Amino acid sequence: MKIAFHVDPIAKLKAYKDSSVAMMRAAQARGHQIFAIEPGGVFSSRGVVQAFAQPIAVSDDDHDWYELYEKATIPLNEFDAVIERKDPPFDMEYIYHTYLFERAADQGARVFNRPGAIRDNNEKMAILKHPDMIAATTVTRSTQVLRDFVHEYGDAIFKPLDGMGGSGIFHVRDGDKNLSVIIETLTRHGTQTIMAQRFLPEIVDGDKRILLIGGEVVPFALARIPMIGETRGNMAAGGRPEARPLTDSDRHIAETMAKRLWAEGLFLVGLDVIGSKVTEINVTSPTGFVEIKAQTGFDVAAMFIRNLESVLQS
């Protein structure tokens, strides 16, 4: 099969830890022809959505891991699958390219994740569709509502709706002398909506990333353990990754959410779970493949390609 990967610039990908690279290696190992499409490489001309696509060969050498071949203009519906793996920011440019991919899907392209589903599932806000799975949460730009929330629960986490990697996250407490300035800063004086969640003390045991692929659950979670004195487990914020078998609670959450999210056209999802609560639903470019394989031997990328083949052949 011909599989195209829409990714950030190839030269900037870190092969030793990048899940997109792991997918490419697994696809090539299964005998598929793979292509790279870099940002800005998708366009519509004469009613057809096309891409500047380059055949790519990959190796296991993390330093010299790829070779790109001559770029060609190829309609997206000529690929057997197009894998959306561009990282945020989820800005207007990102939204525009989901529109292009959506038109490509109308023309017969098989795009994973479904572009409209990515657009409709903000990675912070999407949890609100699953109230049975989450901790107490409010979304607002009202200073009073945020103050009342912190007073009710004592401890809370404030986060921007467009952040990633733990950026802009604050742990606040009732009576905190800096509460007003934190609210002013995050809401830009009441002009920008943010999320507040009840603080979950189970964060000391890790912020677990649970991966769902085509409605199936990866049997290991990647727990991100915060540094001492830190409340964020994100690896970008210094969290230590530790792969663990799913607990019974993890599996219940994952299997329930897998059915719901695959029904929306979300083939690959990364759930962020603290304790027994889902805190985020990652749908743009979930990671953790490499760390799980390195620590457990379970090949997540191979599972991804096998499940993709199954969907394409069904």
Rank of each mutant, 00 (worst) to 15 (best):
I74Y: 07
P75M: 13
P75D: 08
P75N: 07
P75A: 08
L76Y: 06
L76I: 05
N77R: 11
N77C: 12
E78A: 11
E78N: 13
F79I: 00
D80P: 06
D80F: 05
D80S: 10
A81D: 09
V82G: 03
V82K: 00
I83P: 06
I83A: 02
I83Y: 15
I83M: 15
I83H: 13
R85E: 13
R85S: 05
K86M: 13
K86F: 10
K86Q: 12
K86I: 08
D87A: 07
D87S: 12
D87V: 01
P88R: 10
P88H: 11
P89E: 07
P89C: 03
F90V: 11
F90I: 13
F90W: 10
F90R: 08
D91T: 05
D91L: 02
D91I: 01
M92T: 11
M92E: 10
E93G: 08
Y94A: 05
Y96E: 12
Y96M: 08
H97G: 14
H97L: 12
T98A: 06
T98R: 11
Y99Q: 08
L100R: 07
L100P: 10
F101T: 01
F101K: 03
F101I: 00
E102F: 09
E102N: 12
R103S: 12
A104K: 03
A104M: 11
A104H: 05
A104F: 02
A105W: 12
Q107H: 04
Q107D: 08
G108C: 04
A109G: 00
A109S: 06
R110P: 02
V111D: 03
V111N: 02
V111S: 05
V111K: 00
F112P: 02
F112R: 03
N113G: 10
R114S: 06
P115G: 02
G116N: 09
A117M: 01
I118R: 08
R119T: 01
N121E: 00
N122D: 03
N122C: 03
E123R: 01
E123A: 06
E123N: 07
E123I: 01
E123L: 00
M125K: 01
M125D: 03
A126I: 09
I127M: 07
L128C: 12
L128Q: 07
L128Y: 00
P131A: 13
D132S: 15
M133V: 01
I134H: 02
I134D: 15
I134S: 14
I134V: 13
A135G: 15
A136S: 14
A136N: 15
A136H: 13
V139L: 10
T140S: 15
R141H: 08
S142C: 08
T143Q: 15
Q144H: 00
Q144E: 04
Q144W: 07
V145I: 15
V145R: 15
R147Y: 01
R147W: 07
F149Q: 06
V150A: 09
V150P: 06
V150Q: 03
H151L: 11
H151V: 09
H151W: 05
H151N: 10
E152I: 10
E152D: 14
Y153P: 02
Y153C: 09
Y153K: 05
G154F: 11
